[in-house]
Amino acid sequence: MAEIVPADKALDRALALLGAGEVVAIPTETVYGLAGDATSGGAVARIYEAKGRPRFNPLIAHVCDLAMAERIGVFDPLSRRLAELFWPGPLTLVVPLKADAGIHPLATAGLDTIALRMPRGFGGKLIAALGRPLAAPSANTSGHISSTSAGAVAADLGSRIKLVVDGGATPVGVESTIVKVHDGKLKLLRPGGVAAEEIEAAIGLKLERGAKGIQAPGMMASHYAPNAAMRLRAVSVDQGEALLAFGATRAKGAENAAAVRNLSPSGDLREAATNLFSFMLELDRAGASVIAVEPIPMEGLGEAINDRLARAAAPRDMEAAGE
């Protein structure tokens, strides 16, 4: 089983494993990531193997500063402005990949672009100490609920990796927002930890929706799924269903639910995002065959929450769109 080491004592151990081509589960501000050297084919292959992740699904390369990012990708002025405003933080930028970037082709899944992010905290320190970018998708079996605690990582991947770095519960709770600049326009590829409205206010441009195909991680139609089926926008709860609630008003029949978790009794979307994956996991472990989910507003971080719920509820054999 994986060794679980507190973040303030784990740097040297993590560096040794990464230097040997191994993978390490690390905390970030979004969710826990399964990190490996993005320049090493062996390390990237171990990420795919440990997660059981389809190899047509690209990986985000995590960097420690803008200088490292610009050695990997080509930044137009708008992408650079976004990096200056939101890095480090839960924003991923998709930019053209430089020919001499050194990123192993497995990490890009054959695309001529690269998804880049600069994490806060332990991840940033680890990348700076290693001196190379880390590929780091969410630290969970592919398609399953993302992990927001070291314990959740260990329960899922503990038999397949050697180290989980324990940084406590992740503060954001959903994966990064992914944005791509194309022809001077901003395209939202995946809603996430930075609300679209916040980006639009900072840049003065509207984000275009409706991206098709796999242009970045996190775009598969079925993803983040529990074992239980998910029933969205539920206004009533059937006998034996678990309930993922939101706000102060309950769905009809909530008193009959097999288990209840409220993402935010006060209706705070930031609190709801933080609790989303851990509460989904708790309800899944309660044993109900169906999790009913109360309606959640689409504004702000609600867009990211609803995106994850829709992917969790999608038919499990869907591979049409691509994390």
Rank of each mutant, 00 (worst) to 15 (best):
M219V: 07
I47G: 08
D183H: 10
Q239A: 12
L207W: 06
V235R: 14
A150T: 03
V44Q: 07
A10E: 10
S289K: 15
E49I: 15
E70R: 12
P90S: 01
A320I: 13
A150F: 05
G173Q: 13
K212S: 10
A196S: 14
G247E: 10
L66E: 14
L157N: 04
H223I: 04
L134M: 06
I4P: 06
F75C: 03
S159D: 04
S142M: 00
I161T: 07
G41R: 03
P133T: 05
I127V: 07
G193P: 11
D183L: 12
F86C: 04
E282T: 03
P137C: 07
N57L: 14
E271I: 12
N57H: 12
S40Y: 05
E282I: 06
M118P: 05
P119H: 12
I291W: 00
N227M: 01
D65F: 07
L116G: 05
D8C: 11
G21D: 01
K98Q: 08
A292T: 05
A101V: 02
A272Y: 02
P90L: 00
P297W: 02
I72K: 13
Y32L: 01
L283P: 14
L276S: 00
G33I: 04
A107P: 10
P226G: 06
T113V: 15
F75E: 11
D100P: 13
L263C: 04
G110M: 10
E29Q: 01
A259I: 02
H182P: 08
G21P: 02
L93M: 12
I214K: 10
R233I: 06
T170F: 02
R231P: 04
E241L: 00
K212T: 15
